[in-house]
Amino acid sequence: MKLTRAVDDRTEDLYKQGKIPGVIFSQRGHEAIAVGASYALEPEDVLAPMHRDLGAYLLRGMTPGTIFAQAMARIGGPSRGRDTNTHGLGDLSLGIIGYISHLPQSMPVTLGAAFSFKYRGEARVALTFTGDGASSEGAFSESLNLAAVLNLPAVFILENNRYAYSTPTHHQYATRNLVQRAEAFGMPGYTVDGNNVLDVWQVTAEAVDRARSGGGPSLIEAHTMRMRGHAIHDPANYVPKQLLEEWETLDPIKITTDTLRNQGVLDHTTEADIALKVKTEVDAGLKWADSSPLPNPDTLTAGIYA
């Protein structure tokens, strides 16, 4: 989570320095969901993160350097300058299907991976993240239904961060929550505190175990708050300040740190070691990314077809 925050902060610096074209998406508030859920997977599993799941990429083994190179439109990014920031940051050798823009279109695609695993008799699981806004789309419902009917080894993590761009949840759905949809489609549903990394991990691990043992899909609704605008250009003036202040006290890194300190697991030396390790990794990554060349303009049309 610390590494996620550090890469996120450095990305914002790079953007402000004009080193990243396009837009960037803040991870703030989503660190525990991405990290907790990804920890529950085995190396052979596959996940399809969304744009606020940087921690998932890092946990699957993608380096900060690769992530910076992608954002800086260099060939060191997996898309080789063809896709932006966390979009298309995929690498199947790490079990990552890069973020599929147009939420929730990663849901049926993830089911395709789950189908492949089941078809080949492999004990592997496919997990994807989606959001409260995506739940209103047809593909969300189609995917929950398909997953249940075909009994696929899939886990859906719904990150309810209270805002889909400017649309608050009470304009998004008329039910009390979104986990109710699980029962509607015939699968177990879980509600979890999305700012508590251990809770997210524990619940996801249960869903992953069920999927792996042939018990079918699950839907997990993880509650959090999007602490910044939709993207860097969005000041999010439509979000009440008080709401942000309340959630700031629940910052996932802060509460995890407090918990570990209270349990005596984390002391000053360990914290300092972690901070140094994170800084070293981020600095080295940025150095590598900065040395990665821009794409050769002559390769513009290469790869339209496989």
Binding site: I97, P108, V109, T110, G112, S116, F117, N145, V149
Partner: peptide, 28 residues
């Protein structure tokens, strides 16, 4: 039935399922 899959009526979902399967070494 594993190779000739009768799906619920959801064209977008079925094609998405096919896309994901094709990305993971199947030829749907």
């Amino acid at each position: 039935s594993a190779r000739v899959l009768d799906c619920p009526i959801c064209e977008a979902g079925i094609v998405g399922l096919g896309v994901g399967a094709s990305m993971t070494d199947m030829r749907p």
